[in-house]
Each structure stands twice: as structure tokens, then as C-alpha cells.
Design a protein around this nucleic acid. Structure first.
Lengths: 339, 339
DNA sequence: CTGTTAGCGCCTTCAT
DNA sequence: ATGAAGGCGCTAACAG
């Protein structure tokens, strides 16, 4: 239960002034090798541990960044945070975690707290029901990078995957398999990734001369339950879709469950394409065709850019990482029946 | 890009001393209502944000706890952290996240960093290949609670689920379905949860008069790939098991994949029971029978106990939360062929 | 009820 | 190459 050892204790033990100890501990010039050795030895012996609070207070650098995501229990965000954490630790940055649960109020509160914590910078997956928090964040001067989502009308830095491309690739694939009635069970449209995947979906339809049928597009699906519920409705219709493109692998899971209950085999009676390439996707009974996001790259890049901002760069970086379609077994050529 | 507003700025603006401002801001007694109102107003107007570093330095309370888990990308730990974060924020505690990746060295480093950060307490899922870090942590006087795992020979506080019970329930279920050859594809035995699930497995066999066949027990499976690999070996045998109990739902996913490749139908030819009740478990083509852990309760309890420790309690709390078996469709009565 | 003073642990001038 | 002094922003005595 030792009281904390301070730099003064080390100084006393080594027989130097606090200043010299500080210089020795921080690899500053103008310290003789022997002195440094003695200081380090004393520090080690006493179990000295620098107080980051004091250091941060003095230097205005906390070596800590805030990471705010929408749902850490979602394996996609889990993987993102894992990548971010690893990249951050490589630069001796610690991470303060915030989980918004897609709740705007919580986002607001968490950002305030992190500003109080004097983090060096922020990585944020915004809830996007409003943008006031992010605008305020800009005004605060705190360096930040949006992660995985971005605002069309805000000139902030961001790192995201190319959702337009993802939506296009998935839809194009289904079109090329001969599908004409391709349902899109999408997420909430205020979220940029959902909005842009929808753009990709539309672009693919257009590119191949198909018309968009509004009845085949459903929004606001996030969970497996959502996917299940919507798919039940969609599949019970007489002119049901022959393919479903889902906002996430979880939503796809719900679709698959609904298909089974409707007596529809996958992929023979219904093609399904997911999104995220979550780690269970290839383990499903019918391995899921899905859009793969290079998550590690997202993590690394976002940290890299955030560090640039922290170091004073004022060029705005807006990065879209390309995705790729992973074709497995949940999609197949459409069976012959017209529309 | 405003410079930070300090308590002095607020004091000047409100026409009071820093002390009065501090008292007003912290709801301390002996401040007249009007004064308080004026201070609050000035603070709001200037956009004052308390500096947590200064506060922590002064008061020795950072309102921050460290949370160290093995793999945040694993939805189980993701859910745990989500619960913990929520419970923590309710008490205005922030969370510094550490991810060990089951790497002991990283655990050591992360704990050191968090001690430097002067967190108020620590929640740790230990790697358990060694226990020196945890012993050192005890000696440091930092309050901490182990989360999900514990050491048999260390008298530390912990909150975990009852893994012996979980192992027993899963095995018992399979026995009652008539299975005699029940394989157990377990995790690494240095991890307490794996060790205790094995105890449960043994206890169930014993209880029902079955003998343990060492060839049916495999360790060190963590990922889906591990499960797949081990299951391939196990299932290719002539006297293959009729049931598999897996360390996690992910491992079970690998087992299922292997079974398919071996032409074995689930549950008719092979029963499979998983562990964790991960959110995809019920969405599988054959919904997975698995052991459910009340994760939210784990999170809430661990925060509660950690707060007790932080507040000076020195009673040791070792809590095992009961689990329950969720029976779905991946297990069935054994087909008639002897052993 | 309010103000003054000191100091948490560290780093940054500025001397020596 | 080393030391002394000051101050980062805040809260805890202690006065008044």
C-alpha cells in the first residue's frame, strides 16, 4: 500500500535535484551518462511511476485519445476498436472509450466528458441524428477524425469505407446473377453508411437499366430482429423478391431465419448478401456472401490522421477505404420466373 | 480555437474568488444561492470545462477506471465492456480500455500505463499464463476486480460466471439425450473458465457413471478455425463422438462447419452445444444450444464491487453468477449405435 | 458566506 | 552538467 513515489523521492534517493531527475527520465540532453544511470536505478528501485496527470497538466499533452463508437458489442465496432487500440498503443496513446448506443444525448455527454479529460484528440462514430455536437467539437479546437461515418455538409476529416462502392458491388452481383427483384433492407438513413449504400444500390440498378421499386427498399434495420421482421413481411408477398441485400450480416442473419420459416432455401429460392464480413459470416450453414471492410486499415489510418491533426496539420483528410465483395454460398442465379 | 477557460476566468467574470467558484461548481455547502447562480451563469457563458487533470492531481481521484480485456473484437467481451461502460457512466466514471490479445506482456505493459494514469481502479480479465502482474497489482494498492476469470491460488476479488455449473449443465444435457461419447473441445487450460468448465464436464460424467475418455478432450481451441481443425480430426475417427461440447459459440461454429464437410447432419448425426450465447447463436441455420451468461449482470456487479473497493472496503468479494442452458435445435437424442 | 494561501507532481525557463 | 524557482488548474485548509 505504498504511497506514490514522486520525482522528488527519486531525486532524494539519487542525490540530485528534481530537475535533473526529470531530464534523465525523459531522455533530455545535458545529463551525464553516470547521472542518468544512477537516476534510472533509483527510480527502478523505488518503483517510480510517472504521474500522467501532473505531466499532462504541465505539458498540455495527455497521451490519451477518446474513441467514441455506436455499439461496442457489435463485432464490427469491436474489431474497429481493437485495431484502433493496437495502433494507438504503438504510439503510446491510451484510449478512453465511449459507447453511444446510437443515442445522440449520450454522444453529447461523452464528448463533453472527454473534453474535460483533456484528451489529445478524438475518434468519433457520430450518431448523426443531429450534427450540433460535431459542430461544437469543431469549434472547440479539439483535433478529431470521424470514424466510419461522415457528414455530407460538414468539412471534417474522416476515415470511412467506401459505402457507395459496397452498395454497388453487392447489388451488381445480384443483378448479374439474373435477379430483377432485389430487396434492400437498409439501416437508418440518417447514418451516412446507410445513405451511401443506398446510393450504390440505386447506381447499380440504373447502370443495368433496372427500375427501383420503392416497396423493395426498407430502412431502419439494425438488429437481427429487425432483419427478421422486415423479411417476414417482404417474403410473404406474392411477388416476393428473389434476392435480399442486407445492411449488415446481422440483418442478413434475420433474413435467413425468416426465409427458413417461409420454407425458402438459400440460395436456391432466395439469394442473400450481407455486409461487414463479420467473423461468423463464413461459419454459417450457408456461408454468407458479404461485403468485406478492411477494418484494420480503418483503425490504423484513423490513428495516423488523428496524430497528424494533433501535431498541428490543418489539411483536411477525407479518406474512403475501398471494400470488396466476398462471394460465398448465399447467392445464386435466379430461378426462372419472371417479374 | 479558444484557449481553455479556467476557474480563474470564471472567477474574474463572476466577480468572486477562485475558491468560491470552485465551491459553487462542486455543490459544496456555504455558498449563497445567488452567488452560485452567478457563478454557474458565468461558467456557462464562458464555456468553462473543468480540467480533470488538475482536479485529479489535487484530489487523487480521477473518476476513471481501467478496463482490460482479452479481445474486444470477440462479441462476448464486447458485450461485457458495453455493460461495464454503461454502469460506469452512471457513476460518472470514464473508462480507459486495454486489450491484451491474450498476450501476457501486453497485460503487463497496459497495467503499468494505467497505474501511471492514476485510474481509481481496475477491471481485469487476466491472461493467466502467469500471475505475477496480478500479484504486483495487489501490492501496488490499486483497487481492482478480476472480470470473468480468477486465480485459484490468489485471494483477489472477482466477478465471473459459474463455469463449473456451465460445463456441468451442457454435459448433463447431452448425457440425458443418451450420448455416451461426448467430446469436449475446450479452451486453454491456464484460463480459469476453461479449467472450470472441464471440472463441470468431469463432474457430469461422474455423476451419471460415465468414464472420461481422454481422447475426446481437446484443449487450446479459441477461434472458429481451431474448432474446425480439431473437429475434423475428431469426426474422421471411426469411433467418432456423437456429441460435441464446445468452449465457445465460435468454436462451435467451426465444429458445425467440419460436421457439414464430413457429411454429418446436425443434430441428427451430431449434437453440438456451444457457450456464451453469442448474438448470432440463435440465428444459425440450426439454432445453437448454448450456455447463456448474464453479461449485463457481470458488468453491473463488477463496477459495483470495484466502487466498494475504491471507497475503501477491504472485504474480499468473490462472485460467481449462475449461468443457464439455452436449449435450441443443435442437440438431439443420440441415434442407436453403441460404443 | 467568502477570500487567501498552499501545494498536488511535473516540466520549463533561467541561472550557475 | 546541474540546480532553483515558478506555475499548469484545481481543491483543501484556514481566516475572516
Amino acid at each position: 500500500m505504498n504511497q506514490h513515489v514522486t520525482i522528488r523521492d527519486v531525486a532524494a534517493a539519487a542525490g540530485f535535484s528534481v530537475n535533473t531527475v526529470s531530464r534523465a527520465l525523459n531522455d533530455k540532453p545535458d545529463v551525464s551518462p553516470e547521472t542518468k544511470a544512477r537516476v534510472l536505478e533509483a527510480a527502478r528501485r523505488l518503483g517510480y511511476r510517472p504521474n500522467k496527470l501532473a505531466r499532462g497538466l504541465r505539458s498540455n499533452k495527455t497521451q490519451t485519445i477518446g474513441v467514441i463508437v455506436a455499439d461496442i458489442a457489435n463485432p464490427f465496432f469491436g474489431a474497429v476498436v481493437k485495431g484502433v487500440e493496437e495502433a494507438a498503443r504503438e504510439h503510446d496513446l491510451s484510449i478512453i472509450l465511449g459507447n453511444t448506443n446510437e443515442d445522440y444525448e449520450k454522444e453529447e455527454k461523452v464528448i463533453q466528458t472527454m473534453l474535460s479529460e483533456r484528451v489529445d484528440g478524438l475518434l468519433v462514430t457520430p450518431v448523426q441524428t443531429k450534427n450540433a455536437t460535431i459542430i461544437k467539437l469543431e469549434e472547440s479546437g479539439m483535433p478529431f477524425v470521424l470514424l466510419g461515418r461522415h457528414f455530407k455538409d460538414l468539412e471534417t476529416d474522416y476515415v470511412a469505407s467506401d459505402d457507395v462502392q459496397g452498395g454497388f458491388l453487392a447489388t451488381e452481383r445480384l443483378i448479374k446473377l439474373g435477379h430483377r427483384k432485389i430487396a434492400f433492407i437498409n439501416g437508418p438513413l440518417h447514418v451516412s453508411s446507410a445513405k451511401e449504400r443506398f446510393q450504390g444500390y440505386k447506381a447499380a440498378l440504373e447502370r443495368y437499366g433496372l427500375v427501383l421499386k420503392p416497396t423493395l427498399v426498407k430502412n431502419d434495420a439494425i438488429t437481427m430482429e429487425d432483419g427478421y421482421r422486415v423479411a417476414r413481411l417482404l417474403l410473404s408477398h406474392t411477388s416476393r423478391p428473389t434476392a435480399v441485400f442486407a445492411y449488415s450480416d446481422f440483418v442478413a442473419l434475420g433474413v435467413i431465419e425468416a426465409a427458413h420459416e417461409c420454407g425458402l432455401a438459400i440460395p436456391d429460392d432466395l439469394s442473400v448478401v450481407g455486409y461487414d464480413d463479420t467473423n461468423f459470416a463464413r461459419g454459417l450453414a450457408v456461408p454468407l456472401t458479404t461485403v468485406h471492410i478492411p477494418i484494420d486499415e480503418l483503425g490504423k489510418l484513423s490513428i495516423e490522421i488523428l496524430r497528424e491533426k494533433i501535431n498541428g496539420s490543418n489539411v483536411t483528410r477525407q479518406v474512403r477505404v475501398p471494400v470488396k465483395l466476398v462471394i460465398r454460398k448465399s447467392d445464386a442465379e435466379v430461378h426462372a420466373f419472371g417479374d
